[in-house]
Write a protein that binds this DNA or RNA. Structure first.
Lengths: 181, 181
DNA sequence: ATCAAAATATAACATTTTATAACAACAGTA
DNA sequence: TACTGTTGTTATAAAATGTTATATTTTGAT
């Protein structure tokens, strides 16, 4: 309904689903927290991207994101939503969390700062160069050649998206009290 | 109404939306604060576009946009909104995302820096000349001839808007777990 | 140019609509 | 039975809208 009309009243939803308005409010709150819709006084509407807002915090670890943002990772989602993480580490984790909802993922070539697609990028882990963002650190490269030359000097392993994702997930689940399933 | 007429009376808006004039005044105040309209005694009119606004970040990938801006792509939207991306790569993606909302799209001829319409431009991809903005790189040309001569020297493929859009979208979705249908 | 009358705008307050919080009722489950 | 989670109900808070009184601007006559 929201997608079709762009804007719907709480009362209409309440009548449509034959539940109380309170229930609609509660359910919409969840959608809102996911960033799918926006509640305005008197109804709900589709969340739209503002073209100038800048998300200042990492969606995943909530660390402030630097302006420069060479390490950042961005997820383009349905309904014009965009999420931004501090680095590929958090980006990959969030990407996996969202799964099929991700329409596109952007990151930057570590050497040239060129914007590239994350799913086709090359990832370097376990390198000696520490950028000090998140652990385990993941660097992104637009082409394999650059990544390999980088590794020649700074050590590390060159991986594809899926491999890097697996490694990061694994590393994050190791240890003690990590993780409910 | 304001966009169509250029100037509208408070009373007309009040009757149109069946609310009191006071409410119209209050709502217009908000639009005025956003700089979209200008209230004059006896009505509202469209606010002249500020001629020097400048968006400093790419709407799509959020990379800073250089002043030079030869690669930039601009989308003219309803209500005098303008979006700006770092290069044709992000421009095309954003353009597709907004769909019918785009009134006009501007880019620049790669050789002469002339401003041209994106929908009638010629696009060159897969060329050997790397500008280092986004991948896959897309260069824009005002006429087919230039584009073809360019390709003769620097390799690549000459495409129309729709073809380029398709290619970019495809390239960005490639890879792993991309995409639900 | 000056002034009064008309039109329009603003401010303060009253009313209505909508949202939130706290609690009670209910169903399902171990 | 005790626990959990969902839904509905009520009271209260917040926001939006309408009403009235007052101020400001425009108009037009002198």
């Amino acid at each position: 309904m929201i997608q079709e009309e762009g804007h719907v009243k709480i009362r209409d939803l309440s009548e449509k689903f034959e539940v109380s308005e309170m229930t609609i409010h509660r359910d919409l709150k969840l959608l809102m927290e996911q960033g799918l819709v926006k509640k305005i006084f008197g109804g709900v509407q589709l969340q739209e991207v503002s073209n100038k807002i800048q998300q200042k915090q990492c969606t995943y670890c909530h660390k402030p994101i630097s302006n420069e943002g060479k390490l950042t990772y961005q997820l383009i989602l349905p309904a014009n939503r965009i999420e931004r993480t501090c680095c590929a580490h958090c980006g990959i984790l969030r990407h996996k969390q969202l799964g099929g909802d991700v329409l596109q993922a952007l990151c930057h070539d570590f050497m040239t700062n060129t914007t590239i697609s994350a799913t086709t990028a090359w990832f370097v882990m376990d390198t000696s160069l520490q950028m000090g963002c998140c652990e385990p650190q993941v660097l992104t490269f637009g082409n394999k050649d650059h990544a390999e030359k980088f590794v020649k000097g700074f050590e590390g392993t060159v991986l594809r998206f899926e491999e890097a994702a697996e490694r990061v997930t694994e590393a994050m689940q190791a240890g003690c009290c990590s993780k409910k399933k």
